[in-house]
């Protein structure tokens, strides 16, 4: 009498455990599965999709958003947000371009360093206001979005800068071991960021600050320093994206990068990083970046209207957040 219900319960338990772990697997890697499905569908629907030329194209096209999304992952992991990256990208691209344009160009290295420095300064400005003055990141970076765009227009007088030196253009057009330089930059950035977040003390602290700021403070972590640092880093990566974009389009345009912050945030969110901070990581952000890039590329290849593209991207974002929610419900 007693043993029967126990056995039944055991079986039921085992079954629901299997189902549960399948669900967990899906919640955890759903977005990777989605990427796989997209690749599969595109290779069936388009003959040209799975060609090395096209895949190189995709990587080159996502590299700008990829670099931005890597930086955005750090920011969002601390529970923050940076809306100013499109403007910083435009300003730094403009600064870099101005140094290598015209008849007497400076060294491209100098131009890149100058752009990166400007980016760090811009990011640091946001960081100071967010970490020490304790204004909300949304508001500070919204202000920076406008102010930095204005600085870009002042600096450029509203005109594009072209005729860039070929050394500088190498960044956007050259190849390294057969791989486009912009892709190499994105790959190196993502790899470095992944190592930092997953394997260093700094990375752990970023997660801690985003996971619970008060607990992080109690644990002796310099919370303000960490917050400041992620915005400075975001500025640096925006500048890297800025010079790469400028080199790719062979001109610095004052209206470059408008609304780029939204694609970067979308990639991070699709990759399952929680907007409240503390959860997420670089590998899935890269998956998010690839999904957005593949959708753009695939729908172009298939000749589908860009209107649908936007609808699909929107649905992906909402789906990603739903998966994220399901995962947390499961954990609780």
């Amino acid at each position: 009498m007693m043993s029967t219900p126990t056995k039944q319960m055991g079986r039921a338990g085992a079954r629901s455990r299997t189902l549960g772990s399948l669900g967990q697997l899906f919640a955890r890697y759903g977005i990777v599965i989605a990427l796989g499905l997209i690749v599969l569908a595109l290779s069936v629907l388009s003959d040209n999709f799975l060609t090395s030329g096209n895949l190189t194209n995709v990587l080159r096209q996502v590299s700008i958003n990829g670099i931005l999304a890597v930086g955005m992952t750090f920011v969002i992991l601390t529970g923050g947000i940076d809306l100013s990256i499109g403007s910083v990208l435009a300003l730094t691209g403009m600064v870099g371009a101005s140094l290598v344009a015209g008849s007497k160009p400076h060294s491209p290295i100098l131009a890149i360093l100058a752009a990166l420095a400007v980016g760090v300064v811009a990011g640091a400005c946001s960081g100071i206001f967010i970490a020490w003055v304790r204004l909300p990141a949304f508001v500070v970076t919204l202000g920076m979005l406008s102010a930095v765009r204005g600085l870009t227009l002042i600096y450029s007088q509203g005109m594009p800068i072209s005729n860039l030196s070929s050394g500088f253009k190498f960044l956007g057009q050259g190849t390294f071991l057969g791989i486009p330089v912009s892709v190499v930059l994105f790959g190196a950035t993502a790899l470095a960021a992944w190592v930092v977040l997953a394997y260093t003390v700094y990375g752990r602290r970023v997660y801690a600050v985003g996971g619970n700021m008060r607990s992080a403070h109690t644990c002796g972590i310099n919370v303000r320093g960490i917050i400041f640092s992620v915005y400075a880093l975001m500025g640096l990566l925006s500048a890297l994206a800025g010079v790469t974009l400028t080199a790719r389009t062979t001109a610095a345009l004052p209206q470059a990068g408008v609304a780029y912050e939204l694609d970067a945030i979308a990639a991070v969110v699709i990759g399952g990083t929680s907007l409240t901070g503390g959860i997420g990581g670089i590998p899935l952000t890269v998956v998010g970046v690839l999904i957005i890039g593949l959708l753009n590329n695939g729908l172009d290849l298939l000749g589908i209207s860009s209107y649908y593209q936007q609808v699909i991207k929107g649905l992906m974002i909402v789906a990603a957040v739903l998966i994220d929610k399901a995962r947390h419900a499961d954990a609780a």
Binding site: S46, N48, T51, G53, N54, N57, R60, Q61, I64, L245, R248, T249, A251, L253, Q255, A256, N296, N297, D300, L301, L302, G303, S305, S306
Partner: peptide
């Protein structure tokens, strides 16, 4: 062969053209 918006943007048009060159050679 194709008609699509690149929103007046140089960067967007560049990506779009790359993709078209892939699909139409």
């Amino acid at each position: 062969l194709e008609t699509k918006s690149a929103n007046w943007s140089r960067a967007e048009a560049q990506s779009l053209m790359e993709n078209w060159l892939t699909s139409h050679g």
